[in-house]
Structure formats: C-alpha cells, structure tokens
Design a protein around this nucleic acid. Sequence first.
DNA 1: ATAAATATGCGACATTGGTCACAAAGTCAA
DNA 2: TTGACTTTGTGACCAATGTCGCATATTTAT
Lengths: 123, 123
Amino acid sequence: MSQTPTPNPPELVLLKKLWAQGPLPVRVLHDACADQLDWSFSSTRKTLTRMSDKGLVVYQKPEAKGVALYTARVSKTATLANMARDFMRRVLEVDGPLPHVVFSASKLLNDEELEELEGLLGG
Amino acid sequence: MSQTPTPNPPELVLLKKLWAQGPLPVRVLHDACADQLDWSFSSTRKTLTRMSDKGLVVYQKPEAKGVALYTARVSKTATLANMARDFMRRVLEVDGPLPHVVFSASKLLNDEELEELEGLLGG
DNA sequence: ATAAATATGCGACATTGGTCACAAAGTCAA
DNA sequence: TTGACTTTGTGACCAATGTCGCATATTTAT
C-alpha cells in the first residue's frame, strides 16, 4: 500500500501547480512554473513524462481536438503528509505523532485539508 | 557564506554518528551505522570520501601510527536548521519564522542546542 | 493550401549518488 | 619473515536526474 513515490524538488513544484489549478497543458504548466524552475521547455516536458512513468501525474491525450493535459494523480494531503513524516522521522527523529502546528503554518493548506492531514498522520 | 551542502540520507546517518561520538575511524563508523545503512564497507568508505570532497567531513591521516579518523566538519545545529528551513519553505511553504515546536519534539537536540537553533532560525 | 508556430516523440549527454570489487600497502602475531 | 587480516586507493557500473536538441506531426492564421 501507499507506494507514492516522493516527488523531488522540481516535481513538487509542478505538482503544486496542478493541485492548485487542476489539469493543465504542458505549455501553461511550464510558463506558470518558469520563475521557480529555470528550465527550458524541454526539461519541463521530460520531467512530466518521467512523472507520468512514476505515476505522479496522468497524461491525457487530446481527443481529436485540443491539447494534451496533465493531471496530478497523487493527493496533495497524502503527499505532503508522507514527505513531512519522512522528514521529521529521518532528519529530526521525532517519533511520536507530528506536531500539528507544523502544518497549520503552511500556506498550502486550508482548514479542511488540515483535518484530513490530521487523519492521515494521527496515531 | 554558508554553502553547507545539504547531506543526503546516507550522509546524514553518518554525520549524526559523528556528531554524537566525535571523530571515528571508518570501520567503527561503518559498524555503528550498519543497522541503518545496509551497506558494504566499500559503500561507507566511498560515501565518506565523497563527503570529504564536499566538505561535510574532514579526513585525518594517521600520524605514523594509528588509524585515520573522520570528523564532522559541519555543525549539527546549523545543518539541521538549514535542512528544516529548506523543507518548511520549499515543501510546506511556511514563510514566517519556523515554529519552534518542531525542534523541541526532536530527540536529537538538547536544551542548549535548541537555543542555538532558535538563534539560527530567528528573525 | 502553405507557411509559421506549436506540440509531441525520442534520443542524448553529463552529473550525482548508490554500490561494489580488486589490487596495492600496511600491520601484527606466530 | 611470512602469512593473514585490515586499510586504502582506485576504478567501475548502473539508475536517477537535470538538461537539451532535433525531427516529425499538428494546428492555425493568411
């Protein structure tokens, strides 16, 4: 269960955009992340295909007319929860339940998502 | 200033041992981390030389008699502070000062070190 | 219908990190 | 001294990642 591969830094940037905006065409995604990933369009594309191979995103071919879209395949809360848990345990060696404060300071999560996280990490 | 390269997972394991025990010969370090790094002795050695190249540790040749020792070259608090800051900002997008709770839950830090961290991260 | 602009499919190359094996050099007890 | 065992120095290999470029399909504006 839960073999959600941990996204590496650039992958996370792309995923965040997809989480925030929903399915996007490569070009748009690239432009939207251009400030954070100082990349060529090719790099963005390649990274996206590799992410697709790993199951982090889903590639949808255009149906006759229109552009292809990429959609996040992994859940935002689950991904962040995994990353946070790994970091806390591996780096800081925190072993009990993670302090909930950590997440509430995040600009990425709203109340609903915070509750969800609470569930994912609880115990 | 502060081009302290972020140690990757195995590197961090080795560093932690050095922080806790002080300078150690490779063999000892290897044995001490054997449970966490399921590695051959060669891997430990290679990783150590690469860490030396990066400036994470210092290699001390034996002076005529005795074994070579590796010593951590980067500070524990500074390293953990950097890693935590990076993680919080990059992954969770926390932008204010980091919640101090995060560290107090860590089993790696004593009160003195916690204060030091406070200083490093404050502002 | 064409050419200009885009989008896609692929292959390529360099670096880093994980992981060893092997051979030369050193150490030490019998 | 002479093995036996350890330490060191190196070279190798492969997978993942960062990073492109190019050639071919597609789309779209004139």
